[in-house]
Simulated scan of single mutants.
Amino acid sequence: SWYSVIHTPPQDVPSYFDEFRRVLTPGGHLLLGFFESGDDPVTEFDHKVVTAYRWPIEDLAKMAAEAGFAEVGRMLREPREGERFRQGRLLMRRDS
């Protein structure tokens, strides 16, 4: 799910994790890419297409766990030249 949840209103994101779980077989993996908000809460920002959101990595990891995913790994990358925000990655495995 590469940068798909950034365009989802925060109240709808838990249903996305439910759907990810539904379509993955037990043991299947989900790789989530998103813009990370650091110590800030979910933060709205302007995007070329539509309003988007930056997320604290902990919040997304918690939602994933609540939907039945086990965290396998995470990564944060500081913005490179020309980028506005830190990048977040979560690798998760669907529990049985």
Rank of each mutant, 00 (worst) to 15 (best):
W2L: 11
V42P: 07
Y53Q: 08
T43C: 01
L60I: 02
F35L: 14
R21N: 12
V49C: 00
W55T: 00
H47I: 03
L91T: 07
P26N: 03
V49M: 05
M92H: 04
G38D: 04
R80N: 15
E66D: 15
E58M: 07
D18I: 10
L31I: 14
V50T: 14
L31M: 07
S1Q: 00
E44Q: 08
R21P: 00
E19D: 01
F20M: 13
L60M: 05
L76A: 12
T51K: 13
D39R: 10
V50M: 13
F45C: 00
E83D: 14
H47V: 01
K48L: 12
F17S: 00
A70C: 12
Y53F: 14
S4L: 13
F85S: 03
D12W: 07
W55Y: 15
E66Q: 15
P41R: 05
E19W: 01
S96L: 10
S15L: 14
A52S: 15
R22C: 03
R89G: 00
R74H: 12
M92A: 13
R84K: 15
V23N: 04
F17H: 04
D46G: 09
P26E: 06
W55D: 02
A61K: 08
S96E: 15
R86A: 15
S1H: 04
R22M: 11
T43E: 04
L31Q: 04
P10Y: 02
E58G: 14
R22Y: 10
D39L: 15
H29I: 07
P56H: 11
E44G: 10
A70N: 14
Y3R: 10
F17V: 03
A67V: 02
W55S: 04
D95S: 08
E44Y: 06
A64Y: 01
M63Y: 04
Q11D: 15
L90W: 03
G68N: 03
L30V: 10
P14D: 08
D18P: 03
M63E: 06
V50A: 12
